[in-house]
């Protein structure tokens, strides 16, 4: 249930101070640009969260990470999620050419990062995200009037 809370706060553009929110914005703008499904964003965030949470116990934790590390990580997560879910995933160089990225990475670097993320996640990609529930709730008429914010993104 932690995940659901996280998404409520962060999926909708909120304060862009924390780096994680920036990623999320990246992911969302990616989504509209490449016309991918919303499930992709949720899955990408899930992978990102899991990857970070698996690293946080070690001594030098993510507070010491540089921005480009997070950026590379989020590109990799996004790319994995889009390939897992969407029928027509964007190419790596398309993701890389987004104007709001601060760095650009070589395709081979992104591929290696993807592999590391997949390994760390133990290749378990089919996860239950908040989005899985959203789809369920949105199509329940009695609940619809209570879900105002969700209507904005209701083009599943």
């Amino acid at each position: 249930m932690d995940h659901i809370n996280l998404f409520c706060d962060e999926v909708w553009p909120s304060s862009p101070t924390a780096s994680r929110n920036d990623d999320e914005d990246d992911n969302i703008s990616c989504r509209s640009r490449f016309n991918l499904s919303f499930g992709t964003v949720f899955h990408a965030t899930n992978y990102l969260d899991r990857f970070i949470s698996m690293n946080q116990n070690s001594i030098n934790n993510i507070t010491e990470w540089k921005y480009w590390m997070i950026e590379l990580l989020s590109i990799a997560c996004f790319s994995i999620a889009s390939k897992f879910i969407d029928t027509n995933p964007p190419m790596l160089h398309q993701i890389n050419q987004m104007e709001d990225m601060e760095h650009s990475f070589e395709a081979s670097a992104i591929q290696r990062m993807e592999l590391k993320v997949l390994e760390t996640l133990d290749w378990r990609l089919a996860c239950t995200t908040a989005h899985s529930y959203l789809q369920l709730f949105i199509h329940q008429p009695p609940l619809q009037q209570h879900i105002i914010i969700i209507r904005k993104i209701n083009h599943f």
Binding site: M54, N55, L72, S108, A109, R112, E119, T120, L121, D122
Partner: peptide, 22 residues
């Protein structure tokens, strides 16, 4: 959702290897 078979050190290790080509 959150399988944790790879320990934190393994994850850290993999991150290091992953970004060495950046």
């Amino acid at each position: 959702v959150g399988s944790s078979s790879a320990g934190p050190s393994a994850a850290m290790d993999s991150l290091a290897a992953g970004t060495s080509a950046v």
